[in-house]
Measured scan of single mutants.
Amino acid sequence: MATGGRRGAAAAPLLVAVAALLLGAAGHLYPGEVCPGMDIRNNLTRLHELENCSVIEGHLQILLMFKTRPEDFRDLSFPKLIMITDYLLLFRVYGLESLKDLFPNLTVIRGSRLFFNYALVIFEMVHLKELGLYNLMNITRGSVRIEKNNELCYLATIDWSRILDSVEDNYIVLNKDDNEECGDICPGTAKGKTNCPATVINGQFVERCWTHSHCQKVCPTICKSHGCTAEGLCCHSECLGNCSQPDDPTKCVACRNFYLDGRCVETCPPPYYHFQDWRCVNFSFCQDLHHKCKNSRRQGCHQYVIHNNKCIPECPSGYTMNSSNLLCTPCLGPCPKVCHLLEGEKTIDSVTSAQELRGCTVINGSLIINIRGGNNLAAELEANLGLIEEISGYLKIRRSYALVSLSFFRKLRLIRGETLEIGNYSFYALDNQNLRQLWDWSKHNLTITQGKLFFHYNPKLCLSEIHKMEEVSGTKGRQERNDIALKTNGDQASCENELLKFSYIRTSFDKI
């Protein structure tokens, strides 16, 4: 039985969820670079991206490699990797027998973001014989899940209580170790020597080791999670996991709180800001991140802002960003909400898709409305799209047979046209069989910064309504002859009103 693990408890099935942008060198404390989270699957090609990484700022997932063999891993080693800020997950990587050479110096898994409450997941690794993470000293947050690894031993010899604050939620089941077939031998045991430290858990006094050649490092209890030197002297209180010299914040392997210019500090002093819960960055760093993602459509890219001495992905609820200094300031009234469309555009074809934009005031991208039916549609669209004030790209209304009016965009005031449909149009209306009105132009103002209007096959939309939009939106004169079809717009509506004058002759039985 794995020490510190839980057996036999019912657990939810383990679901495996399925960018080499360097964020800056980590400095003297770390020998390499800070790398983003990685999802490495199918083959070993991307694994080489770990070569210079000291910190993975995010998670590391290595999974679904069915053609790899043990010899493929023999020359692979990433000794610079010290810390993973989120979680480490391995799933069905064939041929991998140990992690001792792959990650010989991995010391800390912070667990800032977890995989279903777990910071370390080893699942269905069919050839893994031992973990071998002999320098792993601290899992700051989260638990361990090690399950269905039929060859995995050296679990009962690990004292997880020396690595985690609590072992109650560890789930370590259905491994070879369960069948008591392992016969784990710690260093020196074969020669009758006791080389590794022994600890007591559940009444068992057991030597602690990761492999037959690597003991588990056990520091004096007084050192807590700070770690200790090879001689057993406690590291500085700002260290986490390990250090090369005692009581020196510049000799830590990793930091308990924050890293700044080669030393570990309790908090980031001005003019620095907390970033990702582990390091200090200056304003320029946060500003660069903001600008890199301002026009990016890459998933996970955030326009970072500053709030409460932190550089964070977005302002919290009730705050909006001051564009001059990136500071989050309290909103006066309802907060603006910028919604970034991942692929640059979004099609609204149902109430469900409209709900995804609920509360958005600025759309960074283009909207395509293609709704053919739905219950209580006008009210639903207004509830979900009615706060949109600005669209950076274009607005396209296409084959939306259920629409009679666009009044559900009740606050839309600006279409920038930074991206144009077919390279020309910022407003595009095609084949809307029941569209009769755009907006009530006596109450609604709309500016279209650039781009043209396109109207074709809107049989109940009168040309007068379209011409009014040209005047109000500032697009009059931009359109070419064929942009607004004269014969297919309003051709099934009563669009022309003329005053009919009647004269009559009164007659009676005795007068003409």
Rank of each mutant, 00 (worst) to 15 (best):
R92W: 10
L96V: 09
N257C: 02
T107H: 10
T68D: 07
L90I: 10
V121A: 05
P316L: 03
R162E: 13
C239T: 00
L289P: 05
N170P: 05
C215S: 07
S324M: 11
C239A: 00
S284A: 10
T211M: 04
G262I: 03
Y154H: 13
S143G: 08
E168W: 11
F258L: 09
Y87N: 01
I84M: 02
Y94V: 11
T199I: 08
W278K: 00
E33L: 09
L128F: 13
L88C: 01
I222S: 11
F103P: 00
H212L: 14
Q299V: 07
E238I: 01
T189K: 04
L120H: 00
I109N: 00
Y304V: 10
F275K: 02
S161G: 09
K294T: 14
L64P: 03
D39K: 08
S225G: 07
M137Y: 12
Y171W: 12
C335W: 06
M38L: 07
T329K: 02
D75H: 05
Q204I: 03
C219T: 02
D288L: 13
S244N: 06
S323N: 02
C280V: 00
K251M: 15
A254S: 04
H48Y: 05
V265D: 03
P330D: 15
D75Y: 13
E130Q: 09
Y154S: 09
Q299C: 06
N175P: 13
L102W: 12
G37P: 06
P70Q: 13
H226S: 04
I56R: 13
N325L: 07
F283L: 11
F116P: 02
C301N: 02
A190Y: 05
N105R: 08
I222P: 05
F285R: 02
T194H: 14
M65I: 03
D177A: 14
C209F: 02
T199G: 07
P330I: 14
G32M: 07
A198H: 14
S166P: 12
F115K: 04
R92V: 02
L47S: 04
G58K: 00
L260I: 13
T140N: 10
T107S: 12
L289W: 03
L29N: 14
S143L: 09
R113L: 09
G300P: 13
V218N: 07
E124Y: 14
C264L: 00
L89A: 01
C186T: 12
T250N: 10
L233Y: 06
A254K: 03
Q303H: 12
P197E: 07
K193G: 10
F283T: 08
S213Q: 14
L128E: 01
N175V: 02
C328R: 02
R208K: 14
L63E: 04
C215E: 14
M125V: 04
Y154A: 10
P220T: 13
I84P: 00
A198T: 11
K292L: 10
E57L: 05
L136Y: 01
N42Y: 13
I40N: 03
D261E: 02
I158L: 12
E266S: 15
I201D: 10
S296K: 06
R162K: 10
D75R: 04
P79Q: 11
P197N: 03
T320C: 13
M38F: 02
I201K: 09
E97Y: 08
E49G: 06
V218L: 13
L326Q: 14
C315H: 02
P336T: 06
E71Q: 06
L240K: 07
N308V: 12
V200S: 13
F116L: 13
L63R: 09
A119R: 00
T189E: 07
C53L: 00
D75T: 08
T107V: 08
A190W: 12
Q204L: 10
R263T: 11
